[in-house]
Design a protein around this nucleic acid. Structure first.
Length: 271
DNA sequence: AACGGAACCTGAAAGC
DNA sequence: TGCTTTCAGGTTCCGT
């Protein structure tokens, strides 16, 4: 599923496909992932605009457009942008024809994505955007800045890492991977991590996300649950297998209604 | 504030 | 084989 590295990968691809292009035609299907947007009105509002840049904050994508507009895109669980090959892909929800004649399709089988068109001036005051914490990848380069963020909550560290208002971009997979790498119990209260562990965790988050990003070489990203994907992770999806760090058995439990994978042997509740 | 649970969605995989 | 159930997880919302 798209977490920060997958969204960053998407942003980089979009820069190549979209940046500087003019939108000449639009096709959109009503309902999700369009939120409170009439497809016809959206098309009318998009056509003729030129793409001024692509930005990312956490899992949010910002396609900056001429005329002080911004197309906000959240990939949700299954969203991805793909250049159209022979014909429009199944599950295409929004399609853009660019001034090079090519079509770009946003496909999203499960419709968990979100797409909105906003005035640029309205971005900061938007509740969804304004609430986001600092970007996790940027923060990982200032490892000591994580501690004060974790000090703000007593919730379990795994749960805190998924809170986008504390830190933007970390999802279920990378939270588990980073905690495993620094051998922190996912149940440990966030505010009990020492300065040393907090900094190590920040670096581990940066490392696991960067490594994932470097694995992406194709034009189209393959999400983990899709048929062709093999599991590149140390603990995620590896219940019952041996821990690569200590040989212990990887276990799974449900935390805040989602799976947490961990090694009870090397991720001890010490802190 | 924190937490559990449900809802939103569909396809793949597992179970029968 | 074919039908049914379960599971996946980003986000929001609701009740406790």
């Amino acid at each position: 599923m798209p977490e920060l590295p997958e969204v960053e990968f998407c942003a980089r691809k979009l820069r190549g496909w979209l940046d500087g292009r003019r939108i000449d035609a639009v096709e959109a299907t009503p309902g999700r992932p369009l939120i409170d947007v009439d497809p016809v009105a959206l098309a009318r509002d998009l056509v003729g605009r030129r793409v001024a840049g692509i930005r990312r904050l956490g899992k949010q994508l910002f396609v900056d457009l001429s005329g002080e507009r911004c197309l906000l895109v959240h990939l949700g669980m299954t969203g991805k942008w793909v250049p159209r090959a022979a014909q429009k892909r199944k599950h295409a929800r929004l399609s853009l024809r660019l001034d090079d004649g090519r079509w770009l399709d946003f496909i999203d089988p499960r419709k968990f994505g979100r797409i909105r068109l906003l005035r640029s001036a309205a971005l900061e005051s938007d509740p969804e955007i304004g609430r986001l914490g600092p970007d996790a990848l940027l923060l990982s380069r200032q490892p000591r800045t994580l501690r004060p963020i974790l000090q703000r909550t007593k919730r379990a560290i795994k749960v805190a890492l998924l809170d986008q208002s504390l830190l933007a971009g970390v999802g279920n997979i990378y939270a588990a991977e980073a905690l495993h790498r620094v051998r922190v119990d996912p149940r440990a209260p966030a505010d009990t991590l020492s300065p040393r562990k907090s900094a190590a965790l920040a670096r581990a988050l940066g490392a696991v996300m960067t490594e994932s990003l470097e694995r992406e070489t194709d034009d189209e990203i393959t999400y983990l649950q899709e048929a062709r994907a093999s599991n590149p992770f140390d603990v995620y999806g590896r219940e019952g297998e041996a821990c690569v760090q200590c040989g212990g058995e990887i276990r799974r439990f449900v935390q805040q209604a989602r799976s947490t994978f961990w090694c009870p042997r090397c991720q001890r509740p010490k802190i």
